[in-house]
Design a protein around this nucleic acid. Structure first.
Length: 500
RNA sequence: GCCGCAUUCGUCUAGAGGCCUAGGACACCGCCCUCUCAAGGCGGAGAUCACCGGUUCGAAUCCGGUAUGCGGUACCA
């Protein structure tokens, strides 16, 4: 029998890190077993579901490389696969039929209780939490009478008695008594629309799902699903409840306490490879000392039986480290393509601040990247690292220009001497081979620390104190610009000296 | 409250009765490299394996209890 698993996000928010992790594990399991991975949108909560969120989820999964074999394509494009439609809002027929069946077999019944009724029952019998069952035994005549009065009703599923047991692939045997489930379960609202616990089972049956791999937050709800599978005459799928991804305070990862939107990580310059790698390591481990895994390697090595049962804090530091590792492993051309938009955005930001800029192109960036790759924990770090090349009317912050041990006069002479040396060296020998020895002996002659001179040059050329090595910066800038900026900066140092 | 699940360095984890004086990675600290920032190399500190009791010649590993944490308990998903 071929395995079929699924991810069933609800488009009530942007793609969540937790959803992505669950999707990843399902995807890996499917690839691993030669099975099928289905994507289904659980949009039964029409009030909160939107097409924008749906699109965000689809985009995010594509971006991560977590591709599904069956499911909806982009919004407004036809579904892919034989079990469609893949949006619950379009599957009303299935639910209506299933409810009809349960009703006709008396496995479900209409319930006319008002919120006040339920509250009264709860107060009267505090020992039993959940629904009292006062509508469970209504006769057909009593039901008709209530309908005649125009009282609205929900549909409740009879839970029955005894204990529910099932085996979980990561937690082993789980057992719970039916009486602990909160009373007969509402499966359809008074307006007739079906509820999550019900539709999820109907769809998993209709789509032939063999393995339900999802977050541990669903573990307590699983007994309800088991009962529903049985009532609907279906064979039980296998369950695997994944450990939760946690906030630093060990509660379930949430928007309030953590950054949960996959799209936000993407905007910040995290690379899909790093996100995938990090998510895989939250709850799964290979068993050996390796910690860098590509999606392809994960498809090869993932093993559901090596999934941990306890929750894992989302460690942002580790993600950052992995991100740096993956950025440095990308093919140069690929890195250029991915990093360019971040550089362009930074430069556009400078333009918006009133600077005269040149828009970077692929051709501009390609030769510059080698000098910054190992300085990029994230792609968005490329802005401060290279913007000075594209901002033509660079402004130098006087507070940064003077090295700690230098006064303004020394800085002025240092930069002026440097300019002279560069000029005398000429454009043909403009490079570290000739310039570096020359500048070093300049320092020796004046008794300067090399670091001080280089820092002054660095700030003069880039406006920043953390940059690539200065001779690489010079060649990135070009001969003329280097001379111009050195001149401007020594002039500025002179002005500071005059003021003092 | 009730029910369920979990519990090895700060964090992610290795560990399936002797290989554990508990291994790796991130973070942290130090040194090296060095024109800044990184990256990289080397080293260090960091866990009485939640606690108590039991089984066993021997337990992080098996069993029981306790504690703590988290999750669920909707006409949300």
């Amino acid at each position: 029998m071929t395995t079929r698993c699924r991810i069933a996000p609800s488009p009530t928010g942007p793609l969540h890190i937790g959803t992505a992790r669950t999707a990843l594990f399902n995807y890996l399991f499917a690839r691993q077993t030669g099975g099928t991975f289905v994507l289904r949108l659980e949009d039964t909560d029409q009030a909160r579901s939107t097409r924008e969120y749906e699109q965000d989820i689809l985009d995010g999964l594509h971006w991560l490389g977590i591709e599904w074999d069956e499911g909806p394509e982009a919004v407004d494009r036809p579904a892919r696969g034989p079990h469609g439609p893949y949006r619950q809002s379009e599957r009303g027929q299935h639910y209506a039929e299933a409810i009809e069946r349960l009703l006709s077999q008396d496995r479900a019944y209409p319930c006319f209780c008002t919120p006040e009724d339920r509250e009264a029952d709860r107060l009267a019998d505090a020992a039993h939490a959940g629904y009292s069952g006062r509508c469970a035994t209504l006769t057909p005549e009593e039901r008709e009478a209530r309908r005649a009065e125009g009282r609205p009703s929900v549909i409740r599923f009879r839970l029955g008695e005894g204990s529910v047991e099932f085996d979980d692939l990561v937690r082993g045997h789980v057992s719970i008594d039916t009486s602990q489930l909160g009373g007969d379960l509402v499966i359809a609202r008074s307006d007739g629309s079906p509820l999550y616990h019900f539709v999820v089972v109907v769809d998993d049956i209709a789509m032939g799902i063999s393995h339900i791999i999802r977050g541990e937050d669903h573990l307590s709800n699983t007994p309800k699903h088991v009962l529903l599978f049985r009532a609907l005459g279906a064979e039980l799928p296998l369950f695997a409840h994944l450990p939760l991804i946690l906030n630093p305070d060990r509660s379930k990862m949430s928007k309030r306490k953590s950054q949960t939107a996959v799209a936000t990580y993407r905007e910040q310059g995290y690379v899909a490879e790093a996100i995938v790698n990090h998510l895989a390591l939250l709850g799964w481990s290979s068993g050996d000392d390796a910690d860098l895994f590509s999606l392809a390697e994960l498809e090869e090595r993932f093993d559901l039986s090596r999934v941990q049962p306890s929750g894992a804090i989302f460690d942002a530091d580790r993600l950052d480290w992995l991100n740096g590792q993956w950025i440095r492993r990308l093919a140069p051309a690929e890195l250029v393509t991915r990093a360019l938009p971040f550089l362009q955005r930074a430069v556009a930001g400078a333009a918006a601040d009133g600077y005269t800029v040149r828009r970077p192109t692929v051709e501009d960036l390609a030769p510059l990247l080698p000098m910054v790759v190992e300085r990029l924990p994230r792609l968005d770090a490329i802005g401060p690292m290279l913007d000075f090349v594209f901002v033509e009317d660079l402004e130098i912050d006087p507070a940064l220009l003077l090295p700690k041990r230098w006064d303004a006069v020394t800085t002025e002479t240092g930069l002026a001497s440097t300019r002279r040396i560069v000029e005398e060296t000429g454009e043909d020998d403009f490079g570290a081979e000739v310039l570096e020895p020359a500048l070093r002996s300049l320092c020796e002659d004046h008794g300067w620390k090399v670091g001080d001179l280089f820092m002054a040059i660095r700030v003069a050329l880039t406006g920043r104190t953390a940059t690539p090595p200065i001779f690489e910066v010079m060649s990135a800038l070009g001969y003329e610009t280097t001379l111009d900026r050195l001149a401007a900066a020594s002039e500025l140092a002179g002005a500071i000296a005059a003021e003092e």
